[in-house]
Amino acid sequence: MKKFNVLTTTCVPLNVESVDTDQIIPARFLKTTNREGFGANLFCDWRYDSNGNPTPGFVLNSKMYGGQALVAGKNFGCGSSREHAAWAIAGYDFRVVIAPLFADIFRGNALNNGVLPVQLSEAFVEAIFGEVEKNPQVTVTVDLPAQKVTINSTGQSEQFDINPYKKYCFINGYDDIDYLLSIKDKVEAYELSRVKSGALS
C-alpha cells in the first residue's frame, strides 16, 4: 500500500448525499478479473451520457476542478461491498475522500487501498464546498499524523478520528494481511483451543 502522511491538494466537490457504489462503479464494469483500469469508469453513468459523451456539468468533466481529494455529501459509498469502488477512486488518482459520514464497508475498502476516508462535521464539509465554489484553486491540507484538515484559504481546521492501528498502517504503507500472516501460529493455537473446549460451531 502507498504511504500517506501530509497532502495539500485542490478538491473535487461532489455535493450529493448517499453516493452509492453502483454510481461510483456500475455493476456492468465488475466483470474483469483484475484491479486495474476502473478509474476510467469512475461515476460512469453520471460522467457520460448514453452515447458515451461527457455529461456537461458533471464535476469530473469540469476543467475548473481537479486534485487528489474528493469531497462528498454524507453516507458516501453506501450499497454493495464491491472493492471496485475503491479501486476506481484510487485509479482516478484520488488519495482522500472527505465526507460527513461513510458507509462501513466502503470505509474499510478505501483504507485497504491507500485511499484515506476523512470524516468531518457537516458544517466543515459545507465550508469546504463553499470555499471551493468561490475559488476552485483553494487547497486543503490533510495532515494524517496530526489528524487534521485545514482549508488553506481561511485557515479553518478540524480534527478527524482514525483508529490508531489504521493510522500507523497508513503512514507506513502496511497492509492488514501482512499482520495477519505474521500471527498464523496464534490462529492455529486458537483453532486448537476451540476444538478442545468443544467449539461453538
Binding site: 487501498n113 492488514d176 495477519l180 490462529v187
Partner: peptide
Amino acid sequence: AFGIGTSEVEMALATQCLLQSKP
C-alpha cells in the same frame, strides 16, 4: 455475518481471520 471487500476476501482465504473493530 457481514459483507467484505476483496482485500478482506484475500485475508480470510489466506488466514481465516479479519482485522475488525467491534461495531
